[in-house]
Amino acid sequence: MADKLDLLNQLAASMGAGDFAKTKYEDSKYDPETGTLYCDGIMITKPVIEKAEQHFKALKSKCSYNDPASREMAMIYQVALEGIKIMRASGQETMKEDKSDNT
């Protein structure tokens, strides 16, 4: 029953209920010290992230730039790779900011 209530509250919040609907949504967080991504209530470890990166690189390398559909897939894989890169970079920046705040 609690899951149903959470779902209804999230729906109400997304429809503009604002403060009337409390949700359990939390932003994703990347921990650069451990290389772990926390999102949607799960923990994605550094080895899994590295496997994802290798997977998208391998798929991209199989694409042909002569075929429009294959070229589009290569761009989609590149978006995933860039997302991983940005996640790591933003995690490093956050870590630098935290260290400077503590000094």
Rank of each mutant, 00 (worst) to 15 (best):
M1R: 08
M1F: 06
A2K: 09
A2R: 09
D3E: 14
D3P: 06
D3K: 09
K4R: 11
L5K: 08
L5A: 13
D6A: 08
D6C: 03
D6L: 09
L7Q: 13
L7V: 08
L7D: 15
L8P: 02
L8G: 09
N9M: 12
Q10T: 11
Q10P: 00
S14W: 00
S14T: 11
S14M: 07
M15A: 14
M15Q: 12
M15R: 07
G16W: 03
A17D: 10
G18E: 11
G18W: 00
G18C: 04
D19Y: 05
D19K: 10
F20V: 06
A21N: 05
K22Q: 12
K24G: 11
K24M: 05
K24L: 08
K24C: 01
K24T: 14
E26Q: 14
D27P: 13
S28N: 07
K29V: 15
K29A: 14
Y30G: 04
D31C: 04
D31I: 04
P32Q: 01
E33M: 03
T34E: 05
G35H: 02
T36E: 12
T36G: 02
T36W: 00
L37V: 09
L37N: 01
L37S: 01
Y38T: 11
Y38G: 03
Y38A: 03
Y38E: 08
C39I: 13
C39S: 13
G41W: 00
G41E: 03
G41H: 01
G41N: 02
I42R: 07
I44M: 10
T45G: 08
P47V: 03
P47M: 01
P47D: 05
E50K: 12
K51C: 05
A52R: 06
H55A: 08
F56P: 08
K57D: 10
K57F: 08
K57R: 13
L59F: 05
L59S: 04
K60L: 04
K60M: 12
K60S: 11
S61Q: 10
S61T: 03
S61G: 03
K62N: 10
K62L: 12
C63M: 14
S64R: 10
N66R: 14
D67Q: 11
P68N: 07
P68V: 07
P68S: 10
P68I: 06
A69S: 13
E72L: 12
E72H: 09
E72T: 13
A74W: 00
M75V: 07
M75F: 04
M75E: 14
Y77W: 07
Q78M: 07
V79G: 05
V79Q: 06
E82P: 00
G83T: 10
G83H: 05
K85E: 15
K85Q: 13
K85N: 12
M87L: 15
M87E: 09
R88H: 08
R88S: 02
A89S: 10
S90V: 07
S90R: 09
S90M: 11
S90N: 12
S90C: 05
G91L: 03
G91Q: 06
G91R: 02
Q92R: 05
T94Y: 04
M95R: 11
K96G: 01
K96Q: 14
E97K: 13
E97R: 13
E97A: 15
E97H: 07
D98K: 14
K99S: 12
S100P: 00
D101S: 13
D101C: 05
